[in-house]
Design a protein around this nucleic acid. Structure first.
Lengths: 271, 271
DNA sequence: CGCTGGGTTCACTCACATAATCACAATAAG
DNA sequence: CTTATTGTGATTATGTGAGTGAACCCAGCG
């Protein structure tokens, strides 16, 4: 990756962090110069000279740039780490406020009864999916069957939750597609049943150009399932995890997956 | 603050965190409901029903909402903490990338010689100002005079820097306007000279309605100064710290402040 | 003095993204 | 079959930001 695309990438990032195009370009320009005038900035960035002033003023109020009021004015960017910290903190503060504000709102719903059958929900994003996985394991009463399609899906937190489930009498069954994980899991969860393969087809479907793998497959108490798939979408690193999660013993999706899992299980289980 | 303004505040925050208006409104609506249909969301938020679908789809890809594909579709928001964490993490990742990317760019400047005289820079934002304060104390050779107008400006980090400066032979003089801080500072910096008052006028100018106080006043080696003021701007908590920072013994600003500080100092110093 | 030229600010146009509304297809209920 | 409700797509407004040029200010200089 050459330096030009670094520029563009930095500019994009800054825009995602809430700066306007001119602001982002001006800041990147100033990052390359120990200091600069409007003219200089305009030359090495693509910002029209007459707009450099607005942009830099905004940057100053955000604490990213210092201004020397002389003729001509001179500008300089703060240190990189300082800039990054400033921006990070800004968003941290916002998420904190959001948390507090939402908490103050929430209890405002006319709680109704809802039938708990046949639901199928879809969700996406690693964090959301991880979170629901955890929750489902936690609420298991009887049995947890989990197929781990990818080493990274087996986190230490998940391990703890599984151990806790086992400790309260839930039978834990773990399916693995890669051999490497097996030892670790067997060591972590001595009471669990661990099996390998029987489900290789879950892995990448090499025939289609589709780069999709099943990452997690969870069946709880025979009536709730969660399936997540991982897409190595597009050439760039734009990867994304998607999942569906269903409830209800007679839910079609649940039924199918239950069937599949027990099939893979029966032919491979080891005590 | 009633609940209605909580809503608005939450919506604003979400927009600042990168959501569109409809997305923000729909999310807040879902926060109040255990789950909801497009119609319900449209009713309690101000989002046109036909737009709820798009908005919620976007929220789903951001990991903030789960969708049940039934008829009618049902939506639910993830837990508040989960949502806040998801958003925070998103921005943390971005600032990290930014840091890395900028580092890769920086060495791209034709380093020129610059005369180091008579500069006056302005900067704003607590972090930027704190950072420059630190830097100036660190580069002191001979003398540091610091007036602390506000307890919060005396952080533990600053204390360490001042101690370090003292240890390498720099004479440290601290001015204080509130008595409460005095003990602490004298204990922290036994070698420093500490004086109180003589500079009360630095504090709030009660006659003008203006809520502005001088927060820090720093003179380094008699030739570099930094003055920061704190505005309790506007009725709302919209506060902001602004500063100027100047270099050069014969710089007019530096000269004036030097004069002022030594005036306050001479009449009050204690060994 | 008035001119000239760079530096700076401001006001204006244009394009694009988003908000808002509508028309229509699909589905379920009566 | 009719009707109401749900979902999708197309279309029209509106507002924000990018891009451009005119006006202003203030040197220095003829």
């Amino acid at each position: 990756m050459n330096d030009l695309s670094h520029h563009e990438q930095a500019i994009e990032l800054l825009q995602e962090l809430g700066l306007k195009e001119y602001e982002a370009k001006a800041f990147v320009a100033l990052t390359r110069l120990p200091e600069g005038t409007a003219k200089e900035i305009s030359e090495i960035s693509e910002v029209p000279r007459t707009r450099v002033y607005d942009a830099v003023r905004v940057l100053e109020t955000k604490g990213l740039v210092e201004i020397q009021h002389a003729n001509p004015q001179r500008f300089r960017a703060v240190a990189i780490d300082e800039a990054a910290d400033t921006l990070r903190r800004e968003y941290e503060d916002r998420t904190d406020s959001l948390r507090a504000t939402l908490r103050a709102i929430e209890p405002a719903a006319p709680d109704e009864e809802t039938e708990v059958t046949h639901e199928v929900w879809s969700l996406s994003g690693g964090t959301a999916i991880t979170s629901r996985t955890r929750q489902l394991v936690d609420e298991s009463d009887d049995e947890v069957v989990l197929v781990i399609g990818d080493e990274s899906a087996y986190t230490s937190e998940l391990r703890e939750r599984l151990q806790a489930a086992g400790d309260r009498g839930v039978s834990v069954v773990i399916g693995i597609t890669e051999g490497s994980l097996r030892e670790r899991v067997e060591r972590d969860l001595p009471d669990a049943r661990v099996f390998v393969s029987g489900l290789e087809w879950l892995h990448s479907s090499a025939e289609t150009g589709d780069e999709t793998v099943i990452r997690r497959l969870l069946l709880v108490d025979r009536n709730t399932i969660l399936v997540s798939s991982f897409h190595e979408d597009l050439g760039e690193g734009h990867e994304h995890e998607q999942a569906v999660f269903g409830r209800g013993f007679d839910n079609g999706l649940v039924a199918i997956v239950r069937r599949l899992m027990y099939t893979g299980l029966l032919s491979n289980v080891e005590a």
